[in-house]
Amino acid sequence: MSSKFKSFITDLLRQADITVGGDRPWDIQVHDDRLYSRVMTQGSLGLGEAYMDGWWDAESVDQFLYHVLTADLPSKVRIDPALALLTIKAIVFNPQRARAREVGEKHYDIGNDLYQRMLDPRMIYSCGYWREADNLTDAQEAKLDLICRKIGLKEGQTVLDIGSGWGGFLKFAAERYGIKGVGVTVSREQMRYANDTRGNLPIETRLMDYMELDGKFDRIVSVGMFEHVGYKNYAPYFAKVRELLKDDGLFLLHTIGGALSRRSGDPWIEKYVFPNGMLPSPKQVTTAVEGKLIMEDWHNFGADYDKTLIAWLDNFDKAWPDLQEKYGERFGRMWRYYLQCCAAIFRARWIHLWQIVYSKDGVKGGYESIR
Score class of each variant (00 low, 15 high):
F93R: 13
L207I: 07
I147L: 14
G156I: 10
V92A: 11
V68L: 09
R38M: 11
I220F: 12
I124K: 11
M225S: 08
I18M: 05
G128A: 14
H228I: 11
S261V: 14
E102Q: 12
H107G: 02
R131P: 01
E105T: 13
D361K: 14
N300Y: 06
Y337I: 05
S164T: 10
V241P: 01
T137K: 09
C148S: 13
A50G: 06
G277K: 06
L153G: 05
G302R: 03
N195L: 03
A100P: 02
N200I: 03
E132T: 12
G128E: 02
D247S: 12
R24G: 08
F5N: 12
R188N: 08
E290H: 13
L201Y: 07
I88M: 13
S187F: 00
D120V: 13
D214A: 09
I79V: 15
A259T: 15
R192T: 09
G54V: 13
A100L: 10
V61R: 02
A194R: 05
E212L: 15
Y177C: 06
L12H: 13
G46W: 04
N94H: 05
K171C: 07
L293Y: 01
T19I: 12
R242E: 15
D23V: 13
D80C: 01
A194H: 02
G48V: 02
D23G: 14
K171E: 10
V357E: 03
S44L: 08
D306K: 11
I220W: 12
L144C: 04
R371P: 00
F64V: 03
P282M: 11
Y129M: 06
D161Q: 02
G54S: 15
G43K: 01
A288K: 03
I91D: 12
D145L: 08
M40L: 11
D62P: 05
Y231C: 00
L153S: 07
A90V: 00
N300F: 04
T41F: 08
G362H: 07
F93S: 15
G152I: 04
V285M: 12
R101S: 05
Y305N: 10
C127M: 14
M123W: 11
D23Q: 15
R24H: 12
L136A: 09
F172P: 00
P280H: 03
A139I: 12
D120M: 14
S187D: 02
L244P: 09
F169V: 08
Y358C: 07
A90Y: 06
Y337T: 01
D109S: 10
V357Q: 01
Q15T: 14
D109F: 06
C341I: 01
V30P: 02
R336S: 05
M334N: 13
W268P: 00
Y337D: 07
R188P: 01
A288R: 03
